[in-house]
Simulated scan of single mutants.
Amino acid sequence: MNYTLHQLHIFFKIAELKSITKTSEALHLTQPAVSIQLKNFQDQFPIPLTEVVGRQLYITDFGMEIAQAAEKILNEVRAINYKTLAFEGQLSGRLKISVVSTGKYVMPYFLSDFMKRNKGVDLIMDVTNKSRVVESIEMNEVDFALVSVLPKKLKVDKVELMENKLFFVASSGFEIKKGLSRKNLFEKFPLIYREQGSATRNSMEAFISKNEFSVRKKMELTSNEAVKQAVLSGLGFSIMPLIGIRNELKTKELRIVPIKGLPINTVWNLIWLKSKKQSPVALAYLDFLKSEKERIIEQRFAWGDDF
């Protein structure tokens, strides 16, 4: 057998994503390139690694065993690379962060300079919903998590990053009669929600419950971007984080509707388990945030003070 590390990497990613298309996107390769490498890898084994049923790609039992072996080999190679960099005096290792979906508008700005300064650090950032983020912290799968609502059942330490403001938002083309009460606004027009488990949805429902509004019609979508597009199209209103609609406010495609009691103000927190023994990379990142947080907020997010 004469397979390469490149082929092991591609096959492991295929086994993880179960899709040639998603693998090509994740590895920044063309689909034909991924397919050719999969075929060349498969040709070295007498037993099928994958099978296609209908249009869905599946990994065989034998293929899953090869994928597990590939992961171990790739981790060993990565460890060799990290040790080499460490001997050269460079910070090296992995930084794993789980981020609630709206946090994708925030977290990259607090990572960019750190990653540029430390070429030996690999970043793994999972963008998902609040429930999965909390689970990843609880299961000790990540170094840090970015949340706007602290988990109640976990003992965590935190660094406050910046304010998170949620406003009532409408398409600029959506006509609202002057003098319409808050109650009528919420009960007359369709309201667009995030999915269950979303911190934005929880804040939205708490506001509605506190004011005893009876929502007449609602839609549920599974990402902040999907909600934004629905509002832009005129399907309804929503309560949305300011951080995710900056460009649309600038181009006047969206507008903030003044509502008494809004915005809802929360805080983006980077959290980690109190009991976690942090890696040198994680500790270096905390030191970076301590010294650079205020500069990043001033340079990247000062515009939010205008709302």
Rank of each mutant, 00 (worst) to 15 (best):
D287A: 13
L289T: 07
I73F: 04
E160W: 01
R94D: 14
S291G: 02
T60S: 13
M125K: 10
K228S: 13
Q68R: 13
V121E: 10
F11N: 00
S209D: 07
E138P: 02
V53W: 09
Y285G: 04
N211V: 03
E253P: 00
K18H: 05
K18F: 02
S131R: 10
N140A: 10
E135D: 10
A33K: 14
S223H: 10
K13G: 01
G173V: 00
N269Y: 10
D122P: 00
L289F: 02
K178V: 02
S279E: 09
N265C: 08
I14M: 13
V257M: 08
S198T: 02
F189R: 06
A284K: 12
I20Q: 07
P108T: 08
N164G: 03
T200Y: 02
I192Q: 04
Q44E: 11
I97G: 06
Q90M: 09
S98L: 03
V52C: 09
R216P: 00
A15D: 06
F207R: 09
V159A: 10
R295Y: 08
I243Q: 10
S24T: 04
K183G: 03
G120K: 00
S209T: 07
V99K: 07
I271A: 07
G304S: 07
N247T: 07
R216H: 05
N247Q: 15
S172D: 07
L85A: 14
L95W: 11
A226H: 12
E225Q: 14
S131E: 13
F189I: 09
V52N: 11
K177I: 04
P280D: 11
F41Q: 02
Q229L: 10
K155F: 11
M219R: 12
K18T: 11
E292P: 03
E65L: 08
K165T: 12
G236T: 11
A26R: 14
S223A: 12
E195C: 02
W303M: 09
T266E: 15
D306Q: 13
Q229D: 14
G236F: 04
N164P: 01
S112D: 15
L270W: 09
K104H: 08
W272P: 03
G261I: 01
I259F: 06
F174S: 03
I297H: 03
V257R: 01
A79L: 12
N184F: 02
E25T: 12
A170Q: 07
L161P: 04
R201D: 11
K104E: 14
